[in-house]
Amino acid sequence: MDEDEFDALYNASYRRLCAQLYAMIGDFDEASECVQEAFARAWAHRRKMSSVDYPEAWVRTTAYRLAVGRWRRKKYAGRAADRAVGARTEMPAIDESHVALVAALRQLPEAQRQAIVLHHIADLPVHQVAVEVGAPTGTVKARLARGRAALAELLAEDNPGAVWKEA
């Protein structure tokens, strides 16, 4: 992957990946930082990226794992965040309805939340979601159906709840 290809990927997908990761983990700042770091790792592995079929999916998965790792480190260790990322950027305020949606998503089981975010927010077809999460398409469809039903109830309650509690 050369500089132009990387920049094109970055410019085309950075914002939507941030949004997707935010929907998955419920923390806007963390999502942005982890996506930025995942892109840095993609550039560090650019030779490998040339043979990756879906670079955007690679960045998304890496960012998600980074986010989970960072969350756990804060939760269990109470120690300094990894120094892999730079200074925090000032984040804009988020629309309240989106905050409520993300809070509701956070209450879903992880598998359902992941399926919903990948299908409805990342806009992946079901078969591609199945590939990304490593589950049969039937299972993904079931998760989507259950997830949507649960989400509808949670949104109806209009109770955003807490998002991404810090340790």
Binding site: F6, R15, G86
Partner: peptide, 13 residues
């Protein structure tokens, strides 16, 4: 697509 202000690709590189 609520997201962070766009950082530059050059920074990631």
């Amino acid at each position: 697509a609520p997201g962070a202000p766009m950082s530059s690709a050059a920074e990631a590189r």
